[in-house]
Amino acid sequence: MAEIVAVVTTKKEMVRGGVPIFFEENREQVEETAFLLEKILDASVHDLKDGTLILVNHHPK
């Protein structure tokens, strides 16, 4: 099963839980951080369409 490895969002009040969460000011910054994290973590970025992007590892060992 795929695994959420990080969350990047603008909505502080909507996200909490057991994975690293990155809060950003606006959509552009969310994109930028998600882009960096994708390259660093080798995990794909998916859009939850509410201002939140999640990074998902589709092949956890």
Partner: peptide, 20 residues
């Protein structure tokens, strides 16, 4: 359509980043 990727009418995957 936004993050959703289709081939014809078949849903393929969700691509989050604009650059991708």
């Amino acid at each position: 359509e936004g993050a959703d990727l289709y081939v014809g009418d078949i849903y393929i995957m969700n691509v989050g980043l604009k650059s991708n």
